Simulated scan of single mutants.
Amino acid sequence: MSERTSAVIYYDGEVCNTENSVAFLSENTARLIFNQNIDLTELHKRIRRKIFGTMPIKVFSMKYPFCASVNPVTYDSFDIKGARSLETMVQTHLASGSPYLELYVQFSSPNTVFAASILPAGREEYTAPA
Rank of each mutant, 00 (worst) to 15 (best):
V59W: 04
M62N: 09
E124H: 09
I33E: 15
M89H: 04
T92D: 15
G13Y: 06
S108A: 14
I118K: 11
D12N: 08
M1F: 05
D76I: 09
F107I: 02
I57F: 06
L25G: 00
E27R: 00
Y75P: 01
V105M: 07
R31H: 14
L32Q: 02
L43W: 11
Q36N: 14
I38T: 13
G97Q: 10
N35C: 11
Y10M: 01
S61G: 13
D39I: 08
L86I: 04
A95D: 14
K58Q: 11
D79A: 08
I51Q: 06
V70H: 11
A83Y: 03
T74Q: 06
F34P: 06
P65N: 00
S98Y: 03
D39P: 07
G82L: 04
S69P: 06
Y100T: 11
Q91S: 12
T41D: 11
S6N: 13
T112C: 10
I47H: 03
S69G: 11
Q106C: 15
Y75C: 03
S26I: 07
A23H: 00
G82A: 08
S109P: 12
R46S: 14
L119A: 15
E19F: 08
E87D: 15
I51Y: 03
Y126H: 05
M62V: 10
I9Y: 03
Y64V: 05
K50H: 06
I38P: 03
G122S: 11
V22S: 01
L43C: 12
I57W: 03
P65Y: 00
Q106K: 15
E14P: 04
K81P: 05
E87A: 15
A23I: 00
V105W: 02
F78T: 03
A115Q: 13
V105A: 10
E3P: 01
N28A: 13
L40P: 14
